[in-house]
Design a protein around this nucleic acid. Sequence first.
DNA 1: ATGGCTGTCCCTGACAGA
Length: 257
Amino acid sequence: MKLATWNVNSLKVRLPQVLQWLADSPVDALCLQELKMDQDAFPLAEIEAAGYRAAWFGQKTYNGVAILTPAAYQLEDVVAGIPGYDDPQRRVIAATINGVRVICAYFVNGESVDSPKYAYKLEWLARMEAYVADELTRHPRLALLGDYNIAPEDRDLYDPEGWREQVLCSTPEREAFRRLQGLGLTDSFRLFNQEEKQFSWWDYRAMMFRRNLGVRIDHILITDELKARAQACVIDKTPRKWERPSDHTPVVLTLAD
DNA sequence: ATGGCTGTCCCTGACAGA
């Protein structure tokens, strides 16, 4: 079983790339973030024609998340948003696929540590932590996939000194990431790769991708039951090389069946 | 370099992203 996450930065623009990528590298769950489209604008017909079904939580202009799965699977117990948290920003959707609870999340960016958006980020992180803790009481096989907007360690940044205590890697954000790990979740990428400069996002500007100056902020965290089945977790840089790419690239986890 | 690029919106400039 393969699970993947990809912040597409507009599904309207990136739909052909999503379909091409799925044709090249089929997965059993693809979590998408930053759809940037209203609920009614979701391209369900094209996705179904490609052999996939979908659950999505759309929003005009900003945010928006979706989970795609092959038509052979079901999307069970779909939950949009964080229950009990009246957040106008649509950043979370969850579904059970083939016995695995899949939570797709677009974490708050925060803009900068002195911004009101950063305070919202910390509040949102606390809500997410409580939600995941609650989900874990019911789902021993759970994966939390998405754009976390957190670089967990210095080796996940191209310039740790330049980024010191900036948004994406400030101590409170990293502590929130550690608390998610403390719930019993493992950063699946680091089960297989200990190298520094393994990035999932590169700024569009200044040829940052060609110079490999990026950050690793897209993650797949998994419970122990899934950890026992994990066979590989890779960052697929291929779509970042295509014409008019998203600034993020997919992360893919392979589990034994 | 408070810069560089990309996407969106009642669109030609502002906002957001990270």
